[in-house]
Nucleic acid binder design. Structure first.
Length: 373
DNA sequence: GTATGCTTTCGGC
DNA sequence: TTACGGCCGAAAGCATAC
């Protein structure tokens, strides 16, 4: 095998596009898909907007209030998120793509990596044709457009997919990788966030090209052996990480907005306990045990606090989950003078439950003492 | 010092 | 001039072990 051929397929403005498909009369209007918090009329945030709405400055994360203001003189459509429906459509499109891939890796609800090396016999011209065919197939079956990046590995494919969108296709052949990457800012590399980018800027390496000229030994001295060598190879577009089906989620969480800001532990725990039950139910569906319990609180000033606790041994006990959440909120609130606006709970650090353990748990019930904890 | 793993915060969608 | 979700994984920061 000479070269791998990897694609990253990204569905365009996914939630809003699905709403356009469901109701085609929306297609020529600004469409804004919103998460309403229920606290007051129009409190909440924008999840996704179509490209017409984006022209007015409406983007993910801004408040619904602000989005309405930006679109006040326009015939715009505001819709609540319908996550279950989007999951269904996503799953169908994922299944279409799996048919074209030697290996497949879903990333979130609207992205996937496809290793198509064998399908195209390592030929990048054939890869371009295949990408067009995949786009066409998804469009024919689901009326959804997507943007595809194609390259010799995941790193290049991911960056390429961002070059042209919506409905884009960017193919980067192995021989073109260095010219493709070198003018781009280092922040485009996975693993390079704001802080790392700033540190690199001070070293005079703003672009990936400049990074590739930087001495490896120095990179290792500054960023450590593992990260330093990773950066060196990434700057040359070298990435051997395989496309592989992901296991189940690494964490399961739920967060929700309170009716009003409060520092009353009783009110907070009442909501948190409901969230615990929902998260725990999902955990049971997946057949996992957890080792880590986390909480998060968004305070009145929108600052975010979180706390977590990791156990020695995995457990799946709801009562322990709730008890730990209580403990963590007590700690968090005692360390903060602000009222809470939103509260959330999270489980992570999963271990697959053994059949035996599953049966034991269902037999004894939720009040059981977990033998492993 | 470096590696590793855990906790907290950040950021994309 | 305020406004402001929910979920996930990545990044950053810190503690500990060697």
């Amino acid at each position: 095998m000479q070269s791998r051929v990897i694609m990253l397929v990204d569905f365009d403005y996914f939630f809003a596009q699905i709403e356009e498909v469901r109701n085609p009369s929306l297609k020529d209007k600004p469409v804004v898909v919103c998460v309403y918090s229920g606290r007051s009329i129009d409190s909440g945030a924008v999840s996704t907007a179509n490209y017409i709405a984006r022209k007015y400055g409406v983007e993910s994360g801004i408040s619904i209030y602000l989005a309405k203001k930006k679109l006040r003189d326009v015939d715009a459509i505001f819709l609540p998120v319908d996550h279950e429906f989007y999951e269904m459509v996503s799953k169908r499109i994922m299944d279409i793509m799996k048919g074209y891939a030697d290996r497949f890796e879903q990333v979130g609800i609207d992205e996937a990596y496809l290793d198509v090396s064998q399908s195209v016999n390592e030929n990048f011209e054939a890869a371009k044709d295949l990408a067009l065919k995949i786009k066409q197939d998804i469009r024919a079956k689901e009326e959804i457009t997507c943007s595809i990046g194609t390259g010799p590995n995941k790193l290049v494919a991911k960056i390429a997919a961002d070059i042209q969108k919506p409905d884009g296709l960017t193919v980067v052949k192995p021989g073109e990788v260095e010219n493709f990457l070198s003018p781009l800012p280092v922040g485009r590399l996975i693993g390079v966030g704001k802080k790392t980018e700033a540190r690199m800027e001070s070293l005079g390496t703003r672009t990936i090209g400049e990074l590739s000229e930087y001495d490896v030994q120095r990179l290792v001295a500054i960023f450590g052996k593992v990260f330093g060598t990773y950066l060196h190879y990434a700057s040359f577009g070298i990435d051997e990480s395989p496309v592989q089906e992901r296991g189940e989620a690494e964490s399961i969480s739920r967060i929700s907005t309170l009716k009003e800001d409060t520092w009353d532990l009783g009110i907070i725990l009442e909501r948190a306990n409901q969230l615990c039950e929902e998260v725990h139910a999902r955990l049971m569906q997946q057949g996992f045990s957890f080792k880590t319990v986390g909480i998060v609180a968004v305070m009145a000033d929108m600052s975010i606090r979180s706390r977590s606790k990791t156990f020695e041994n995995p457990t799946n006990e709801l009562a322990l989950f709730k008890r730990t959440v209580k403990e963590l909120f007590e700690k968090l609130l005692s360390e903060s003078e602000l009222e809470a606006r939103r509260v959330g709970v999270k489980l992570s650090n999963f271990v697959k439950m053994q059949e035996k353990q599953k049966q034991l748990t269902s037999f004894i019930g939720t009040s059981a003492i977990n033998l492993y904890s």
